[in-house]
């Protein structure tokens, strides 16, 4: 595909770029800047006061409570990434290699579940995991005592919810990098005498790394902001960063604090993105050629 060089005086370029560019600038970039500015203000009697100071930031950095929650958020997100990658790998591999004929149907099933209202799905999980819910009900049917498991309203349930909502991201990114692998490379490995397992670990997995990294990064940054899962499924017993932010806005009506905490979470996300970019650049060196070859 050739790309046409366009000058900013070309109406076609303006038409293509301006609407989305302006919308994103006005309602995404400017709000981010505004959030940064707000974090330097103060509040009085639940009202925002424009006084430039660092009070909120010193509050954020001195309160251990905030950092316990941030730490928990990072830990839960990391765990969620690990689970999503481990669970996503065999599924993506199966879709890319074994289920060619069913691939479309499976994709649609995943997409439909993925796009269904998050609140409803979370609510469904509550009904499923509840002490008197479907899961325990089924266990009773096979002979367990009533209320055998008590998963709901704990960090376990939060994690189930997070993996549930974020797993599609790793499945799709890994799948996309796996279907691009040249089939001849796999055959060459078999031809060289490698077993199927060996081939998977020596050829398929390394070549699928771009997808694994992309999925892992997406899942990590998105899980930093989960809110419904810890609140509704986790029962609010072990709150995560988003809950903290919501409280600063809604309960404490302290916008500068909420803004500062939002920036902390965004900062954690960006630092991890940067670190990931460094790691990825080092590890994927030399694989570029591969990728290009696969695209032609």
């Amino acid at each position: 595909m050739k790309r046409l060089r366009k000058s900013w005086r070309d109406p076609a370029l303006i038409l293509a770029v301006a609407p989305a560019g302006l919308l994103m600038t006005a309602f995404f970039v400017v709000p981010l800047v505004m959030t940064a500015l707000l974090s330097f203000q103060g509040t009085k009697y639940y009202r925002l006061v424009w006084t430039w100071n660092l009070d909120v930031w010193s509050d954020v950095f001195s309160q251990a409570h905030y950092w316990t929650i941030m730490g928990r958020t990072v830990w839960m997100s990391g765990l969620c990434v690990a689970l999503c990658v481990i669970l996503g790998l065999p599924i993506a591999y199966a879709m890319a290699t074994r289920l060619k004929s069913l691939e479309n149907h499976i994709t649609i099933l995943i997409v439909f579940a993925f796009l269904t209202d998050a609140v409803l799905k979370t609510f469904g999980w509550v009904l499923f995991l509840d002490r008197t819910g479907v899961f325990n009900g089924m266990l009773t049917l096979v002979g367990f005592p009533p209320g055998a498991t008590d998963l709901l309203f704990g960090p376990g349930a939060t994690m189930i919810g997070m993996v549930y909502n974020l797993l599609p991201y790793t499945i799709f990114t890994i799948y996309l990098s796996m279907v691009r692998i040249d089939r001849d490379l796999i055959l060459a490995a078999y031809d060289a005498g490698a077993s199927k397992t060996r081939t998977f670990f020596e050829v398929t997995l390394p070549l699928a790394r771009p997808g694994i990294y992309a999925g892992a990064i997406l899942v990590f940054v998105l899980s930093l902001g989960v809110f419904l899962e810890p609140k509704v499924m986790g029962g609010g017993t072990s709150p995560m960063a988003a809950e903290l932010i919501r409280q600063s806005f809604e309960t404490r009506v302290n916008w500068p604090l909420g803004a500062a905490l939002t920036l902390v979470v965004i900062g954690i996300g960006m630092v991890s993105l940067g670190l990931a970019a460094l790691v990825v650049r080092n590890r994927l060196q030399g694989q570029d050629l591969q990728g290009q070859g696969g695209q032609v």
Partner: peptide, 20 residues
């Protein structure tokens, strides 16, 4: 700017826009 919102947790997007 057109891709970045994909990397933002929705709640944070919502909060940031709400402030604005």
């Amino acid at each position: 700017v057109t891709f970045a919102p994909l990397l933002f947790p929705q709640l944070l997007l919502g909060v940031v826009m709400l402030l604005w």
